[in-house]
Structure formats: structure tokens, C-alpha cells
């Protein structure tokens, strides 16, 4: 069983929800990334979503785009992120999910990427600009290698679309809380709970919710409904602007999830 599924199963048994912080690999250098992941694990993170820097991060807001720019100017790309995860495995066994755009994967070579990712100890991959319709080879290759493929469901996804996406997901399903980009303000629509329940009708895979979750209050609300809560921009910002407050902030989030 994959490390991700194992994690969600354990949490479910203990009636707990997953806390899934996101950080950008190589933001202020990879040494910092290692320290941050260890800190997050210490504070109770269940899974780390690790951003791969890309020049044109379409699904991301300014906070994460700037973090990507910092990482790129530190020379960090996908080719450096995979060996980094391998090195991380000497210190930590926390599940790692890469969030990368498709072009770096395409340029790397899809099958080489899958092979190297699994060899490096990556557990799952999110590619926000790869729709399942275009991903049959990638999904097949990943299944064989036991690399989890996580796709995104939006509040605007239709029933037909939801069915297709949940079938393509393994590990967990990523539900995007709002129509928008990462780091937007969270304004949950009334249909939020109904829509998530729709997803559950079609699949018993865990559902994690992200985009716009920035305060402990947001996290608490989401944790009541979802199996996992993803917090990205708010943590990236804290680490960059007020590193001394990061531990406290992450602990506060953990408490309510």
C-alpha cells in the first residue's frame, strides 16, 4: 500500500484529519527546504506538498509565483528537486507529493520522470495543468511504478467530469475550494458541502481541500468536511517574511485540523 493511502487510513482509524502543508522546493535554497520540511513534520504535518519551481505557474497566485522565482534564481529545477527528495529520505519518511506543472515533466521525459520520482522516494504527483483526458500514458506509467496521481476537482466540475477525475486519482483527491488560484481569499459557497458529498458518492478515496486556506479558522471549517486540509501560500509567506513566527503558525493550524 502506498505511503499516502497508509497515512490516510491511519488517520481515519484515529478519527483525525490530514494536515498537508505546501512549500516551494528551493525557495531561499534547498538547505532551507530541508529545515522547513523537518520543522513541519515536527509540528505534526502528515504529508508535505512540495512545489517544483516553474517560470509560468498558472494555477498559482503571486505568493507562490514569487517563491518559484526565488527558487529558479537559486538554480533549483525539477532535476535538482528529485535528488533532494532522495537525500531527504535519510532524515524523514513523511509522504511527499510533488506539485509540478506539466512542461518540466514533459521536457524531463514522462517515463524517466516517473522512474526517477519513485526511485527518489516521491509518493505522489499533482500536475494542475494536465487534465486526465490527456494523461492516459502518464497514469498507466505511474500505476505500474506505484506513484500516486492526484488530479484536481473544481467547484465548477460537472458530475461527468467528477467521475472521470476521481477514477484518475490515486492516493487522494484534490478538491479546489474556490474558483480561483492559490492564495486567494477563501469564500466558501453554500454548495461547497453538497459538492464535496457529490465527490464522495463517486469515490471512497480521501478528499483533501486546498486553495485559499490561510487561517486557523479556515482550516477548522475545512477539516469538518474534508479528510485533509492543504495550506500553501499562507505558510510560504510566513516562512519567507516572518520565519520566526512560522513554528507557532504551523502549530496553530495543526491544533484545529
Amino acid at each position: 500500500m502506498s505511503r499516502i493511502r497508509e497515512t490516510f487510513r491511519r488517520l481515519k482509524k484515529n478519527k483525525k484529519k490530514a494536515f498537508m502543508p505546501y512549500i516551494m522546493a528551493g525557495d531561499e535554497g534547498l538547505e532551507k527546504t530541508l529545515q522547513r520540511i523537518l520543522l513541519l513534520e515536527e509540528c505534526g504535518a502528515d504529508l508535505i506538498e512540495l512545489g517544483v519551481p516553474f517560470s509560468d505557474p498558472l494555477a498559482d497566485g503571486p505568493t507562490i509565483q514569487r517563491a518559484a522565482e526565488r527558487a529558479l534564481s537559486a538554480g533549483v529545477t525539477l532535476r535538482k528537486v528529485l535528488p533532494f527528495v532522495k537525500k531527504l529520505r535519510d532524515y524523514s519518511q513523511i509522504p511527499i507529493v510533488l506539485m509540478t506543472y506539466y512542461n518540466p515533466v514533459y521536457k524531463y521525459g514522462e517515463s524517466f520522470f516517473i522512474e526517477d520520482a519513485i526511485q527518489s522516494g516521491v509518493d505522489g504527483v499533482i500536475i494542475p495543468d494536465l487534465p486526465p483526458d490527456e494523461a492516459s500514458n502518464y497514469i498507466r506509467g505511474s500505476r505500474q511504478a506505484m506513484l500516486d496521481t492526484i488530479f484536481l476537482i473544481a467547484p465548477t466540475s460537472t458530475e461527468r467530469r467528477i467521475k472521470k477525475i476521481v477514477a484518475a486519482c490515486s492516493g487522494f483527491i484534490y478538491y479546489v475550494s474556490i474558483t480561483g488560484i492559490t492564495g486567494s481569499r477563501l469564500v466558501l459557497e453554500e454548495s461547497f458541502r453538497r459538492h464535496i458529498n457529490k465527490v464522495r458518492e463517486f469515490s471512497d478515496k480521501p478528499v483533501a481541500v486546498g486553495f485559499g486556506v490561510s487561517t486557523p479558522e479556515d482550516a477548522r471549517t475545512i477539516a469538518e468536511i474534508a479528510d485533509g486540509v492543504i495550506v500553501g501560500s499562507a505558510i510560504v509567506k510566513k516562512f519567507h517574511e516572518h520565519p520566526d513566527e512560522a513554528r507557532h503558525f504551523v502549530e496553530e493550524l495543526r491544533k484545529v485540523i
Binding site: L58, L72, L78, R79, Y102, N103, Y106, K107, Y108, D129
Partner: peptide
Amino acid sequence: IGILQGTKSYLLQDGNGNI
């Protein structure tokens, strides 16, 4: 050839797929 902004086409990109 690469993928940008929802399209597969010719791109000016580096060896890591950054534009």
C-alpha cells in the same frame, strides 16, 4: 516542443522546461 498555457506547440524554453 513543449506545453504552455494549455497548448502543445513550439516554445522558447530551457533544458528544464522553463520558458
